[in-house]
Design a protein around this nucleic acid. Structure first.
Lengths: 186, 186
DNA sequence: GTCTATAATTTGATAGAC
DNA sequence: GTCTATCAAATTATAGAC
């Protein structure tokens, strides 16, 4: 069942790399086509408009993130938090790029609404997962705390990327961890 | 001394509005020229390349932000924090746009290095101001806490802008306030 | 300083052959 | 499904008149 990826999947993958490397506006059909070894007309066959491609990119990213969340053992709250924060560290270190949705979020005002809706769903998925974790271990969802965690990590990835200094993300994660621990015990 | 703004200033102002409305990549010389009532060649006279214009935009934004910081009374820590957080609220509510440097930071990887350097200086200015505040009232700079505040507010502005829901920023600000208060008293 | 004019390139998107 | 070919529009940037 681990057959070769379809051309559609390869296009989405290449497009995500381009967006994370230089933004949605600067990602072009021609560049993506070159990356996967076809012509731009072929990319248009799979995704008629750029908005269609944008939606597919975010949906695919969110799906992978969702699977990663499902793989986290939430029986211990702080272990779960560490695993969650590690997802952002991976996004920065391994991919050497900003979280896809940090870019999409920042560019929001100029993007197609369909793309923005997908991005919003990504943030909502993160919030819901954290609220579920807090609910399980404190008895309340702590929606505001969840919002702080998500926004701080997204912001940290942006600042860290700009300064090319990963210690920003490490510091912010440590501060958040302390705050979460306090809230869970107290 | 409050004479009319120069053409150069008017161009920078219009360009900032365009960037905050749809990103740096989508801001064009023609659009900016039309906004201020000249031709694109005239914009090029003042700013030969787009990188030059980008640097000027961020520098101008940082200068205004700096003046706002200078105007905050820091004798009481929590009053000062509220005034600081209000700057982000204004950026979102009044301007109806994301913080300029949140956009520039998110787009960092694809931007000219000169622009990125200016953006980094903006973040550093924010961190230094907060560290000064914490130093004054706790005896230590609390660099990690300062990083959390800046990244969370930048991230909150992005998420709030994407969802068109200002309560995100309000919630995050409230959480940060609580954390700062705890650190200052404890 | 601002203009007209234009070069050189890139973009998103479509038509039609194979 | 992928190709060639092409379009219409937009982009950054420059040359030279005024």
């Amino acid at each position: 069942m681990t057959s070769e990826p379809t051309m559609r999947d390869r296009i989405v993958q290449a497009a995500e790399r381009r967006v994370r490397a230089s933004g949605f506006a600067e990602m072009s059909f021609r560049d993506v086509a070159t990356d996967v070894g076809v012509k731009s007309a072929s990319v248009h066959y799979h995704f008629p408009t750029k908005a269609d491609l944008g939606v597919a990119i975010v949906a695919n990213y969110a799906k992978r993130f969702s699977q990663a969340l499902d793989g986290i053992d939430t029986s211990d709250p702080m272990t779960a938090f560490d695993a969650y924060a590690a997802l952002y560290d991976v996004a920065l270190v391994v991919d050497e790029a900003v979280c896809l949705c940090a870019i999409m979020g920042a560019e929001s005002i100029g993007l197609p609404q369909t793309v923005n809706d997908q991005t919003r769903a990504f943030f909502q998925m993160n919030l819901s997962w954290l609220e579920g974790l807090f609910q399980r271990h404190t008895g309340t969802a702590q929606a505001s705390l969840a919002r702080l965690v998500v926004t701080a990590l997204e912001g940290a990835i942006i600042v860290a990327s700009n300064a090319q200094d990963r210690s920003v993300l490490a510091d912010v994660t440590a501060e958040l961890r302390q705050m979460v621990a306090l809230r869970i015990r107290g």
